[in-house]
């Protein structure tokens, strides 16, 4: 996982609730076997019309937000399919931080796995950030994970909550699988204690 400590970036406001992962990366692009390159198809049906032309009215296509790297969103962002392609696409496009009142469970886990910071704030605070982002072109937020603060380019600031374990992993860029493999003895002990035939797996694969 990539380390995350502090980050400052331009914020783009996406004023839509329940943005599902089909909207973030449409399924026709899920056939690729690589992790890279999904930024091109991020929000494809929003950014491009059926003829492939750029949709000027979609907020990500607005020149003001061309260099945005923090996404401000609404409730239940990332619902639906478990595709990790959605956070891959957001990151590949250039996003480092997502801020919303709530995220869907699997999506939030997936973001954490790749070091994309998802920050949940109370709805009123999110409303306030939406207002401030709208008030000023090039509005930036500085995210300090260690201090758990967000500070806007106009000085507005707030704290955010984060799971202590996730914070630790993100700050140190820890490999989740590496952490688990430190418990190899516990895993092996569990397997020895649960080896009854009706608990075991495929006979043809066991040899």
């Amino acid at each position: 996982m990539q380390k995350f400590t502090t980050f400052t970036g331009i914020v783009v406001p996406l004023d839509m609730a329940h943005v599902d992962t089909d909207q973030i990366v449409p399924k026709q692009f899920l056939k690729r076997v690589q992790r890279e390159g999904f930024g091109q198809v991020l929000f494809h049906h929003h950014r491009f019309d059926q003829a492939g032309q750029v949709v000027d009215t979609f907020v990500l296509n607005h020149p003001r937000y061309a260099k945005a790297s923090i996404l401000l969103a609404r409730e239940n962002f990332g619902s639906g399919s478990s595709r990790e392609h959605a956070p891959w696409a957001l990151m590949d496009y250039g996003f480092k931080v997502l801020i919303a009142p709530s995220f869907a469970d699997i999506f939030k886990n997936n973001c954490f796995q790749i070091g994309l910071l998802s920050i949940e704030l109370a709805g009123e605070l999110v409303d306030e950030w939406f207002k401030r982002v709208a008030s000023q072109s090039g509005y930036r937020i500085t995210v300090d994970l260690a201090g758990q603060t967000l500070t806007g380019s106009d000085g507005f600031a707030c704290f955010f909550a984060v799971d202590p374990h996730r914070k630790h992993c993100l700050l140190n860029g820890l490999d989740d699988i590496g952490l688990t493999l430190e418990h190899e003895d516990r895993i092996a002990a569990y397997e020895r204690a649960h080896a009854a035939p009706w608990q075991a797996g495929a006979p043809e694969a066991r040899s």
Partner: peptide, 20 residues
């Protein structure tokens, strides 16, 4: 329950998953 690709990798490698 469903998971993303990184967690698929985790289960492939360890047959376990850290979960809240």
């Amino acid at each position: 329950f469903g998971v993303g690709t990184s967690e698929v990798e985790h289960v492939l490698a360890t047959q376990t998953l850290p979960q809240d």
